[in-house]
Amino acid sequence: MDSVFLEIYEKYHRDLFQFLFYLVKNRETAEDLVQEVYIRVLKSYDRFEGKSSEKTWLFSIARNAAIDHFRKQRSWKQKLFESFDWERNQIKDQQPLPEEKALQNDNMRRVYKSLDDCTMDQRSVIILRYIQSLSISETAEVLGWTESKVKTTQHRALKAVKKAMEEQAGKEEIPFEKIPME
């Protein structure tokens, strides 16, 4: 086995897979994409200049792989008539919920579902910031943005999640006694 592969696998595989899974919300797609990341990394590892951290470099590769995946998924009509706008388009997959126990909880389920109502950019920020616990500057590095763009996107992402959660709660008409509220 390739030593670079092993090294990256040991250090980052968990994070990369997690990141990709929440971006595409599909296990099989995430599995394919994480392999795609390895392929891209192994081909260009010698080009890694150490300007950014290895981790942010890998995340940016993963994000590009996901973006390419979504581009491929679009129909030829969409490709023909619109250029994909990552700030506006919302990727709504009706994927089954993962079986993880944590998602049996109503609120966790709602948060998970609400990611569907975020744009690709918002989702990226949420995953990097909250699931991967990256700093603002690290997130900016991965996305190639300024820190202030990360902050505003994060703010809007939280608002979008909140709105989506409220809408779901309204539809479900489930009482909220479990939720601590103020």
Binding site: F5, H13, R14, Q18, A102, V111, L158, K162, P180
Partner: peptide
Amino acid sequence: KRSQWNENDIEELLKNLPNIKDRRHPKDIY
């Protein structure tokens, strides 16, 4: 009831999203 969540609640929920693992063996992936 609907506006019960504040940003902190949501941030907490997001941080606690389950860890999804790749169940495959690294050999298979390679």
